[in-house]
Design a protein around this nucleic acid. Structure first.
Lengths: 309, 309
DNA sequence: TTAATAGTGTCTATCAGACACTATGGG
DNA sequence: CCCATAGTGTCTGATAGACACTATTAA
């Protein structure tokens, strides 16, 4: 096959011009991270408080500009995650970061999603074991883990006008928005006293909702639920991950048998947990993540008829 | 909730500067489309021949620059698909385009993926019914549907250097690259006379491979296989779609029963096809796409043990 | 007439989920 | 002691896939 032509500036100018003169209008590229972890048994997301306008004082996903010519998208996401949260420096924190799973979630590029200029944001999704409290980066007023249930996941007003929604169904298998029904209210529970939910900056509520959908689907087919746990874990701890992410109670006995029946999902360490359950019971056996990259058969979520169409 | 602050140029400068001075280095954003269709029973992808360096004379995915401030990502993808292929203008072609399914595939942003500058490409995946032969746009020497099996899906040399691969597993459930085993050779078939496969420009082989993986996974859980067919279709025609995309022979009887057992997948039109099979047989009944957005239960691919891990 | 094909019936192995049961250990 | 919990056994209904069979139509 012929070798690619070397760089030719004149040809580039001609090529660019032949496309569209507007190609020279600047577009900014940022990388945002939906970092999920489990704290006290519930799903939390890492947020930073914006120190400058627009959306000053709002909480937002950690992120920042792609360093042009210097890094790829996944590299930028890993850098932002480490940098914006202060989860860097100590050997302990770096070891924790090395266990974080990072995958691309999708890109968001509606022209009006940032009031200053057209910004295309490439979102990444991270699964992390329980991490220490973060330190705010230089550009953020604060950084903290927020319970997902405390956030308003409806698209912010003014975002995603009709006619220009970005398709981001990639990998998501249910069409529901994830934020339309607040986690914790499943229709049968008594109506909670309406506690105000925190609104997010830009279209980050939409990105977070997409990330949650992805996470819920991902742990069905991949062993990534173990990414929320430390090296050794018990089956009940793994079940707690599924219950937190899906917001569903699972049958302990059936879950146990199903996990062990999937080849390569977990492997026994031969040890047992130090203590039994919080309210008594036998000590559970310890397991570590197996070598399977995909679960077969999958651990499917309980079907809800109203989510099919 | 407080209203967003109005535009404030001074604050923006400060905000940008606080991130990183390199943020001002330009990054270009393009949108590329993996458009798949069925022709003569096999899967084809739309490609354009590059008229200018780099990769002059190579075939590439149709795409182009995002029009900053004017359009969202999905809009740009739809525009490129229409524009670069001449599939616009006639009422017939526009009707065909309106039936095309478009979804975001992923973004590719390794610094060296384009030799001229750092280009972040947002890839879209399109499923289309059999479309007419395309017309090349102004910037392409030619445009044509290529059989997927005639293409070299291995990453091009020099692309994706170790250490900076972009994670694009989103929605893909099998970890295999899709191009490592050429479609049509399943290990049992006799070795074909090695016909040279067409190499693609940039990292488009990787993008195409990811798109094929996504397509193969997507038709398991969604009724999108019908997007490859015209309004009315028969179950054997639908089966041909699955067989082409998965490159697997399926059991006609079991497939028929399974499709009809999934609520909302297809609904009967009451009519029957004009002709029987190409080599005889009864006339099949016609169906149209149902109202389900997700297939439950799913039409899972036949399991191959070697793809699990 | 022949052979390929549409569509249905039936059997079996597997799996998801419900339920029951025991054994263990914290409060 | 009490009771929540870990883990196992067993049953039932749904499903995937193999195979058999008929009815229909192009060549």
């Amino acid at each position: 096959m012929p070798a690619p032509q070397p760089y030719d500036q004149a040809a580039e100018q001609e090529w660019l011009a032949s496309y569209d003169p507007h190609a020279y209008t600047p577009v900014a590229v940022t990388v945002d991270v939906v970092a999920l972890t489990l704290r006290q048994g519930s799903l939390h997301v890492l947020l930073v408080e914006r120190a400058a306008p627009p959306y000053q004082g709002y909480w937002a996903l950690p992120g920042g500009f792609l360093r042009a010519g210097q890094e790829g998208l996944a590299e930028a996401a890993a850098r932002e995650l480490a940098e914006e949260t202060g989860l860097l420096g100590t050997a302990d924190a770096e070891a924790a970061l090395s266990r974080v799973h990072l995958e691309q979630l999708g890109s968001y590029g509606a022209p009006e999603r940032d009031p200053r200029m057209h910004v295309v944001s490439v979102a990444y999704l991270a699964f992390a074991p329980d991490l220490p409290d973060p330190q705010a980066g230089t550009d953020a007023a604060a950084a903290a883990w927020h319970p997902v249930s405390s956030l308003d996941l409806r698209p912010a007003a003014g975002q995603r006008p009709a006619g220009a929604p970005d398709e981001t169904h990639g990998g998501g298998f249910d069409g529901h928005a994830g934020g339309e029904v607040p986690p914790g209210s499943d229709g049968t529970a008594p109506p909670e006293p309406a506690r105000p939910r925190t609104a997010l900056a830009f279209d980050h509520a939409t990105i977070l909702a997409d990330g949650l959908d992805r996470a819920r689907a991902k742990i069905e087919y991949s062993p990534l639920a173990t990414a929320f746990l430390r090296h050794d874990f018990t089956i009940p701890e793994l079940r707690a991950v599924y219950e937190a992410v899906w917001d569903e109670k699972l049958h302990p006995g059936n879950f146990h048998r199903k996990v062990l029946s999937v080849p390569g999902f977990v492997e026994s360490t031969g040890t047992t947990a130090e203590r039994g359950g919080s309210r008594g019971g036998p000590r559970a056996r310890n397991y570590r993540s197996g070598d399977a990259a995909l679960l077969h058969p999958a651990l499917l979520r309980p079907a809800h008829e109203d989510e099919i169409r």
